[in-house]
Nucleic acid binder design. Structure first.
Lengths: 210, 210
DNA sequence: GAGATAGTCAACACCGTGTTGAAGACCGGG
DNA sequence: CCCGGTCTTCAACACGGTGTTGACTATCTC
């Protein structure tokens, strides 16, 4: 997934490429993606607008490169997560969800820009959905394992449940990042999300059947 | 909320206004909002581009008017929903959620365009969040009532739970409408969503405590 | 030091949005 | 019935952002 943008690779041009990325992430922290022009990115990196096109084919390509980094970070951290679901299911789920919250909060601008651009741009959509898919796979594998060992009721489709819960996290985290209304406090998010995950994975269907 | 766009009102201009709205909804059924130009709307309504501005101040205003209709339809149907949560909690929640699914599916183009425009446009965001707020109020009122009568455990914040579940519905329905990947089958959506709502409202926290 | 290749940018072409100013249609009152 | 006004229309324009061209400089390679 490296080598997005530049043609070959030599020496000092890489710094420019990086300056564009740094500028973009900085500007996205304070403004919406649409309000950042290629001119802004070029100026921030100390080059002219046409020169920008030497490094990236479009503004979307910059976002894609930025998103790629964030996703790589998540993938890496997913791999290093402790998988102690048998001994401490609640804690294990909470730690997994907390990791996502942390990463997206720490790259707020990129996350919200990418989620917005997904509707418009095929590559962003593809990259996002590829990783979403891998998180869904991870969670539905765990759910199926929990069902197999009898800890969770097996009458629920693990895949559909995993998709819905992951989409919920995406949306709730986005709402928190954007300080939307209605939304929930950033400090409360992790607790509510974990509660919903745990109750819907381990709980039974019958109202009143606590 | 009527009278969005036109100055006064006389006779035949209303048909033009309506023709723009009809054209917009038709085009949004097959293309993304960004791919519909004001020129397209004008041509579809049989007028020139500058004349479009006599009826609407911008393309976003057209979307806002369209969204207004959809939301009015939902509000109306929320008001007429049977509130038999005491006798048939599962069925009552499922019918409420099903109503949302129906309305948004039947205005697919408008729904997805509005959700996309929310990030960019203050008025769309405001209108959407106002109605989201009213659905959240409705659901958290019911949740609190269920907690009060002892049917649901009272150790959960009803508001935060209602917000998260409503955001989940929004996101899952959007994913279904756009045939995203990963997503779930349209036929399966209602069942999974209801299951998650019911388990997280009525279920206890303890894994294994079925 | 000649020839490729990296890097740079002024100037241009294009497209979509929004504005202006002037002209036609149609009204109601003298 | 015609004259002032308001409703309606649009050709032409101004603007801003994107992406392209072609030519020019710096640097590295043999």
């Amino acid at each position: 997934m490296a080598q997005r943008g530049r043609r070959s690779a030599r020496v000092s041009g890489d710094e420019r490429q990086d300056a564009i990325l740094v500028t973009a992430e900085a500007l996205l922290a304070s403004r919406a993606f649409d309000d950042v022009s290629i001119e802004d990115l070029a100026r921030g990196a100390g080059i002219s607008r046409p020169t920008f096109y030497f490094y990236f084919p479009s503004k979307d390509a910059v976002l894609l490169a930025l998103l790629d980094r964030v996703i790589t970070e998540v993938e890496h951290r997913v791999g290093h997560l402790p998988r102690d679901f048998e001994t401490d299911p609640a804690g294990a789920w909470t730690r997994s969800i907390g990791m996502f919250v942390e990463v997206f909060v720490s790259h707020r601008g990129v996350s919200t820009a990418a989620i917005g651009a997904r509707a418009r741009n095929d590559e962003v959509r593809g990259l996002w959905s590829k990783s979403m898919q891998s998180w869904v796979d991870f969670s539905s594998d765990v759910i199926r394992a929990e069902q197999a060992r009898g800890a969770a009721p097996a009458d629920t489709d693990a895949h559909d449940l995993a998709v819905s819960l992951n989409l919920m996290n995406e949306r709730v985290i986005t709402a928190v990042l954007n300080r939307e209304s209605p939304a929930i406090a950033e400090t409360a998010a992790l607790e509510v999300l974990s509660t919903i995950w745990i109750r819907s994975i381990y709980g039974s269907d019958k109202p009143g059947g606590r």
